[in-house]
Amino acid sequence: MAPSFALMTVVSYIPLLLAVVISVTALSIFTIGDVWQAGLVGLTNYLDVLNPSGPLSVLGPLRNSVLFTVITTLVAVPLGVAAAVLVNQQFPGRALLRTVMLIPFILPDFVTALIWRLIFQSGTGAADQVLRFLGIGADYNLWLIGPNAFWALTIASVWSAWPFVYIMALAALQAVPAEYYDAAEVDGAGRLRRFWSITLPAIKPTLVLALCLSVINQFNSFTLPFVLLGHPPAEEANVLPVEIYTTSFTANDYGHASAIAVVNLLVLLIPIAYYLKKARSDEN
């Protein structure tokens, strides 16, 4: 207990505080040589990034991030649960299927992003070739820029995100005592009924956790959009972590970047708070 929190203090809490400190300074590449010159600017950085009409506004990326996260999670969670319920049944080939389902989770993000980048190449990529073969849509589509970019990102993210939910749901399913089912079956409960009244309540705590973690994962996802869409990304698919990156390393503006990061964190507090509340009421 103590050692793990000591470690976290050094590697998480203190850096977190420092990040907040940097967010109220004008630290940039020009003040790097003498950091004390950077100077405090109060909440200016926050006002800049939250000003809807300002050039440094991050409201667009913020909206993208929220939408992208919500959609990805809403699709990934049912998929993951369905997969877990499926492979919790007994049938030949189940072990193989379980392994296969882990693949998107195991693949490193940069590999996943490369695959989908290849799939979404205009005209030559697999997506366009298949669509052409099926006679749907144009000869080629621009997947990686313009409004489609958002959906390309969402599709790739769902593909890589659902096994996370699946693993957690499966772990929870396995902890459900078999007697519950046996009893229900003896009582004559149907399959669907059993799912709603036994399975779902039993795995609900884990499911809420999975939902929460999935939201957090998507919201903080950096490598996938970054590699998939390139840099600078299409406006429509520019998400907060990439915007933080841009501000840090394109604009070399560490003050504003830290402010965006803190905003990023504050937004995430909503699912966190919700989860904590849920978790506590479940305990009681």
Partner: peptide, 24 residues
């Protein structure tokens, strides 16, 4: 740092930018 860093496949930029971090 950014403009050029992602050549074609657009991954190398993070390392470029990030190495800059060491400076910061």
């Amino acid at each position: 740092t950014t403009g050029n860093s992602i050549k074609g496949l657009n991954t190398p930029m993070s390392r470029r930018g990030l190495l800059k971090l060491s400076g910061l």
